[in-house]
Design a protein around this nucleic acid. Structure first.
Lengths: 192, 192
DNA sequence: ACCTTAATGCAAATATTTTGCGTTAAGAAT
DNA sequence: ATTCTTAACGCAAAATATTTGCATTAAGGT
C-alpha cells in the first residue's frame, strides 16, 4: 500500500489528523504499551479504521508519525546567559526527557517504523537546538562548541544508555560528559 | 497471551525453533523488509501459525528473538597481540556490522520488541567482548582500558550514527574515536 | 515399556487489514 | 456566491491474520 503525500492542509483532513493523534496519545498513555490497536484508536478518535489505514499505512507508521510530532521542538532551549551553562541546562533536560519511559517509547516508535528518514529527522531536532545555542554564543562573542563532538560524546552516550540499558543518566553523569567539552578548572574539583 | 519459558530443550521443540529461525532469516534476507508475516514464516518453516503464536506471542517478539540470536557472539574478538590494536580491530569490525543494513535491522528488531531486557542483553554482548580484551591485556601485563569509557565514547557514537543518521562510520572515524582512549603519540606527549 | 505433560497440529471463532464504491467537503475556477 | 474537480472519508464486504479449544504427538522421567 502506498501512502500518498497529503495536499489538503486544513479543514476536515486536519481535524481527523488531530483527533487520531490525540487518540494515540491518550491510549498510549493509559495502556502501558500492551498492544494498542488500530480499531481501538479509530474508535477513540471517532473515525473508521480504513481511514487510518489509508492515511498512515499501518500502526507502526502512525505511532512513528505521532512520536516525531511529539519529539519536534516547540520552543528554543533556555537562555542562561552563557554557552556552557546553556549546554549543561539543555542536556540535563534532554537526558531526562529521553530516558523517561515516554521518551524511550517515542524513540522506539520512531526506530520501529519502516519509513525512512524519520530517525534522522529526530536527530536533526537535537542538532537544531545545539545550533541555536551556538548562534547565541556567537552573538555574545563567545566561542561556539563543536556540535559533532557534543553529539558523539554527550548526546550519543545518553541515548545509548536510554535505549540499551535500564539505568537512567543522572544530572551528575550528564555533567561529567560535558566536562569533556568544557573541562572544569584544573586546580580543585568541587564535587557536586 | 503469556509465553512460558520452555523447559523442553531438545528434540522436536528444538527442531521447530531452528526451522522457524531459519525461515525468518531466509525471508528477512530476500524480502527487503517489506512486511514479512507470521503465516509466511510458518509456511516456510513447515509449521502451523498457531505454533509460532503460542511460542513467541507475536511477530515482533519472534523477530527480536532471532535478532538477539544473530547478535549473540559466536567467537571471541581477534587477538592482535596488544590491547590497543585489539580494541581498534574489534571496534572496526563491530562498526561495520552494526551500521550495515542487516545490523541496523537487527537492532531495530531488538528495540521494537515489547519484551523487556533484550536491548540490555545485546549491550551485554558488547560489554563481554570488551571484558575479554581487558582480560587478555591483564594476562599480558598491559594496563586495561576503562570499559564504560569505551562504551560511552566509542560504542555509543557508532550506534547513535547507525540508528539516527544515514552516514556509516568509516574506519577512520572509528580510529579517531579510539584516539580519545589511546591518544596518538604527539610530538613529545607520552601516551600512558 | 509405561506415564506424565509440554508442545504441536488442526479447525473453528474472532479480530484485523484490505478493497471497491458511493458520498462528503476542500480548494480552485467561474 | 455558485459550480466544478477530486482528495479524503465512511461503509460494508472480502481477504487475511490472530486467538482458542481440543485431540494428538513426542520429550523426559519412572
Amino acid at each position: 500500500m502506498t501512502v500518498k503525500e497529503r495536499v489538503r492542509i486544513g479543514g476536515r483532513s486536519a481535524r481527523i489528523q488531530s483527533a487520531v493523534h490525540d487518540a494515540v496519545r491518550k491510549l498510549g498513555a493509559l495502556s502501558t504499551r500492551n498492544q494498542i490497536t488500530v480499531p481501538q484508536i479509530a474508535a477513540e478518535a471517532g473515525v473508521t479504521p480504513s481511514t487510518i489505514y489509508r492515511r498512515w499505512g499501518d500502526l507502526s507508521a502512525l505511532l512513528a508519525d505521532v512520536a516525531v510530532a511529539r519529539l519536534r521542538p516547540i520552543a528554543d532551549p533556555d537562555d542562561t546567559g552563557a554557552v556552557e551553562s546553556d549546554l549543561r541546562a539543555f542536556i540535563e533536560q534532554y537526558a531526562e526527557e529521553m530516558s523517561s519511559p515516554v521518551g524511550q517509547a517515542l524513540m522506539r516508535d520512531v526506530l520501529s517504523a519502516l519509513k525512512e528518514g524519520l530517525p534522522s529527522a529526530c536527530a536533526g531536532f537535537t542538532c537544531d537546538h545545539l545550533t541555536t545555542l551556538n548562534a547565541r554564543a556567537k552573538a555574545r562573542g563567545e566561542t561556539p562548541f563543536d556540535i559533532d563532538e557534543v553529539i558523539d560524546h554527550v548526546v550519543a552516550p545518553i541515548i545509548y544508555r536510554a535505549l540499551f540499558s535500564e539505568q537512567i543518566p543522572t544530572p551528575d553523569y550528564c555533567n561529567r560528559l560535558i566536562d569533556r567539552i568544557y573541562p572544569p578548572a584544573r586546580k580543585r574539583r568541587t564535587a557536586g
